[in-house]
Amino acid sequence: MKRIAARIGERVVSLSNLDKDLYPSYGFTKADVLEYYRRISPCILPHLRDRALTLKRYPDGIGGDHFFEKRCPAHRPGWVETANIPQSGGEEMTVCLVNGLHTLMWVENLASLELHVPLARVSTPGIPDSMVFDLDPGEGADVIDCGHIALALRDILGDLGLECFVKTSGKKGLHVYVPLNREETTFDDTRRFSKTLAQVLERSYPQKVTSVMAKDARKGRVFINWSQNGPSNTTVCVYSLRARESPTVSLPLAWGEIERLTRQADPGEFQFIHSDALQRAERDGDLFSGLLELRQTLPGF
């Protein structure tokens, strides 16, 4: 196996198999993946910080096997920050914290194309920093339908005085985030709120929306997955690559752009790849930075 040692700050990260093509039908090697994450790191690192990372590894690239890894691999360099989090069985699990570029590079060297994180930080496990609505189009629905629902969510939340942010999932759906950043708000609160909102929308628009996971209920509708608001749930991190044919990205968009793209009604326009993400990050900075800063209170809690 070919290895090179890369110096990042004071640390040396050992990188291997850099010319391995991880997106064979598109042509995107491990070196390209590392370069993407290196360049997007100013934007993505604040969103990964202090969160238990779930690795989704593709050692043989897209099309090969992949696996989720919640435990931090035991064969890690000493400088990888970790945390021990309790599990349901009473045992503890050691997880990786991507708190710096060196760890990000190490994780990507393991071909963890997708980075998934929970809504809470390891120091405050019961406290979500935000609430998420994962909009997932069922069979026969598409991202344009998700766009309509996302805009409806924005209006309803806005009516309640709540600002929210939106990103593409990098696959077929959209993710709407409501920043909270308040110690008083727990997962019980966000689950109750998000579920109620999903059910109210479902009742008002039964042909367009469902709040239940059952496969049949999702046909032709947008599934508002409120249940992602749990302490053990993870959602793909903003700016993460996705494991699709081409290296798409879960990319934040301005609401104006969602309005425009939804009007245009071309689902293909909702797909953004690595180069789009880098261009936009350079132009606009991190559109999701407000998610980490804005303190908001859910009504009634």
């Binding site: 409806a152 209006d155 309803i156 009516d159 309640l160 109750r192 709120f193 579920k195 109620t196 909102l197 059910q199 109210v200 929308l201 008002s204 009504p299 009634g300």
Partner: peptide
């Protein structure tokens, strides 16, 4: 169901 008052508030918004 969610709490009644929350449902009412959300329905009003919708």
């Amino acid at each position: 169901e969610g709490p009644g008052d929350l449902v009412a508030v959300l329905q009003e918004s919708v």
